[in-house]
Design a protein around this nucleic acid. Structure first.
Lengths: 170, 170
DNA sequence: AGTGGTTGGTTTCTTTTAGAGACCTGATAG
DNA sequence: CTATCAGGTCTCTAAAAGAAACCAACCACT
């Protein structure tokens, strides 16, 4: 029902959230970036229940965000590692970290910071255009229907645009 | 219980997810970026139940991510707009959109694309260092304890680092 | 004066998820 | 022969989400 912009719809953000939009998945991936690899490690660092951890890891493996690899065979034991698809979630976590540090943590009270080994300095990631390399801001970015947009999506876009214009006038 | 890295802990990503890590909050914010402002608009575009929408909007207003503004007074009616704090979630949504388009949508089937009005071209946001302006990749970024890190956090970092080194050897 | 539509909700009931904790398995260690 | 570790499963309870009915203030029509 409703215009085709919701969760099971083709919006890439909605699709990502469909997969990872619970309270644990992105924390598991964060820990994986920190180097955690084993069931027990995730469980202890996160304080997540085993049942939910099993479910989340299964989902992540099925989605090919993580892969399960045997690291010993006498008793078979596996570890979970990020795939390329998983590693590319790095920018998502970085922008989240930046926003959290900026708005949820008092200044000077940050518990985590980022060091860029290129320049050796503390860094705050910035977004730039892949084309002109200029900064990206909401005002200078426009979302437009892509090649896979069907009539419904275009329609939804029009409606949203029209509505937001109406609001501006009043 | 467990090392201090979980949800109620000082990790900025965990704090963000504590606030926004459900299946709806970020979609509401996405719609707000698209220009949706009214209860009904969110409800129809998202297909979310009114109860949950009420709860989420309340949370977002309490967190000062959105603000409720009266737009007419005969029958009092309000609309919900992003605050500066909310608008700064833009990079988070952009990186999510990029990942979703890249990994969850078939190439050429993207329903949404971004146009950078600076250069007028289709763009894929990239992350660069605020310092040296060079690209940021997992391999070139290191998370280090910040000024607000207490002994526990530093300890947790050490443990994680040690564990991931052990893994590399085996 | 009554009917229906619009906006922005609340209430109730049912289904889904999450969480705590007991239990299981296969292996090695003492 | 018992203990411990890694990596789970199973069961039960509590919390959250979803569907749908209802409510209320105002307007516009008839």
């Amino acid at each position: 029902m409703s215009i085709n912009f919701q969760r099971e719809a083709p919006c890439p953000i909605a699709q990502l959230l469909e997969l990872l939009g619970d309270r644990w998945s992105l924390l598991i991936i964060r820990d994986a970036f920190y180097g955690v690899r084993r069931f027990d490690g995730f469980q202890q660092h996160l304080g997540i229940s085993k049942k939910v951890l099993t479910m989340r890891l299964t989902t992540l493996v099925d989605a090919e965000i993580m892969k399960k690899e045997r690291y010993q065979s006498k008793p078979e034991r596996y570890e979970y590692r990020l795939t390329a698809k998983g590693r590319e979630l790095f920018p998502v976590l970085l922008t989240m970290m930046r926003w959290g540090n900026r708005w949820l943590v008092d200044e000077g009270e940050e518990t985590v910071q980022l060091l860029h080994s290129n320049c050796g300095e503390k860094t705050e990631p910035r977004m730039v255009c892949s084309h002109c390399e200029q900064p990206i801001t909401p005002a200078r970015i426009q979302a437009v229907p892509g090649p896979g947009a069907n009539r419904e999506v275009v329609q939804a876009f029009r409606q949203i645009v029209r509505k937001s214009e109406v609001k501006k006038e009043s």
